[in-house]
Amino acid sequence: MELTAAVVLLILVSVCCESSVIVSKDGSGDYTTVGEAIKNAPDLSDKPYTIHVRAGTYQEYILIPSHKTNIKLVGDGPHHTKIVGYQNGSTIDIRGEGFVGENMGFANWAGLNASGAVAVRNEGNKTILFRCSIEGLQDTLWAVSGRQFYKECDIYGTVDFIYGNAAAVFQDCRLYARYRAFVTFTAQSRQDPSDNTAFTFQRCTFTVSPQDSPFKSLLHATLGRPLRPYSRVAIFHSYIDSIVDPKGWEPMPHQPTDKVTYVEFHNVGPGSNTDRRVDWPGVTLLQHPSQALPFTASRLLDADSWIPLTGVPYHNTL
């Protein structure tokens, strides 16, 4: 979006007032672990506190508590700076408002049959992950609650690997299915029709991970299933690969399918044909851009009021 002079000034003022520290495994920074840096960050900060995490693999389990606001983790690239976990639970658990992760990798490799092995658990309001890699198998990204924005991220998983009840918008992200006979990209868990929550995917890619491409013909995927009755997912201007079954969506055991909202608009790719989608009342191919407006970042996240101040680029329209 275009930034006004006033917004640009606010960004410049914010940047010049930022505090920052360095994490480096070799001891050349202010801290050797990410956890230490977060522990010593100011409480209830009203401006960004930047933690530059230098290249390296950090085997840690990170909590951003609710009183650590406006934490900004900046790495040297998602494949150079990685925080990795190897057990059930969350590699990083975000609860503080205003968190930004940029050029970071987050992974949980607890195992193919592990459930609850979450790479990123996010319940922070007004949170952003920008140019990050989020890697796991089942339950990779738990978008619990709040307003969340994901831009140019790579997200890897198998079953229900993006799930939760946040209002979350994913722009220009690549969703990579890892090999497993049964794959579901999403399991959005909107419980109440009054909740303004949903997952929106805009100009994203739904495909197989490069590492698993030799098994592409054996992989069977759906776009999602309802973890709760009023599940909502919108997919716009995205590429849907042939691994996605023509029915598109599938039921979750013990959950109704007559209350969901699953909408698609101007998608491309061999899996984007909607002629054989499941025959549920809320599964819809939108015909006009105005029908998609409630799922845009501006409407779903009230993004225009807070994302520009971070300097992270986004599209506020279709």
Rank of each mutant, 00 (worst) to 15 (best):
E36N: 11
A107I: 09
T222L: 09
T127D: 11
G85I: 05
L12H: 07
L12T: 09
N88H: 05
N70T: 04
A5D: 14
S90L: 04
G124D: 03
S189H: 02
L137T: 09
L285P: 00
I155A: 03
L309W: 09
V312D: 05
Y230R: 06
P214H: 09
H254R: 14
A107C: 08
P214K: 10
P294E: 07
S19D: 15
L10N: 14
D275G: 02
L63P: 00
V53Q: 07
V278P: 00
S298W: 06
A41N: 11
V208G: 02
A55S: 15
L286Q: 07
G269S: 09
N316Q: 10
L309F: 15
A114L: 13
Y156W: 12
P214Q: 12
K68N: 08
R95D: 06
P48C: 06
A292K: 04
L63H: 07
I71K: 11
L112N: 10
E60H: 01
T186E: 07
V118Y: 05
V53G: 03
A187K: 12
F106Y: 12
S189W: 01
N103K: 13
S231C: 06
E264C: 04
Y61S: 07
I38W: 03
Y150K: 05
A114D: 10
A234C: 08
I38N: 06
E135Q: 13
W249Y: 15
Y163L: 14
S305A: 13
D30N: 15
E36G: 04
S133C: 02
N267L: 09
K47R: 15
V8F: 02
I51R: 03
L223P: 00
F161L: 08
Q148G: 03
N70A: 05
A143M: 14
R299N: 11
E135P: 00
S189M: 11
T207C: 07
L73S: 11
V233R: 03
E18N: 09
K47N: 10
G35A: 14
D154G: 02
L300R: 00
C173M: 02
A168D: 02
L227N: 14
F201Y: 15
N273M: 07
N316T: 04
G85M: 06
L219D: 04
Y163H: 14
H67L: 13
V13F: 02
N108R: 11
D160F: 05
V13D: 10
L293C: 02
V144C: 01
R203V: 01
L318K: 02
G282V: 06
L223Y: 03
W249P: 00
G224D: 09
V283Y: 04
C204A: 11
V53M: 12
G164F: 02
F236R: 03
G224R: 13
N316F: 12
Y314P: 00
A303L: 13
Y163I: 04
I22W: 09
V283G: 04
G56S: 07
E60Y: 01
L318V: 11
Y262E: 09
P313S: 11
S238A: 13
Y150L: 15
G56F: 07
R299F: 00
Q191G: 11
Q138C: 09
V7Q: 14
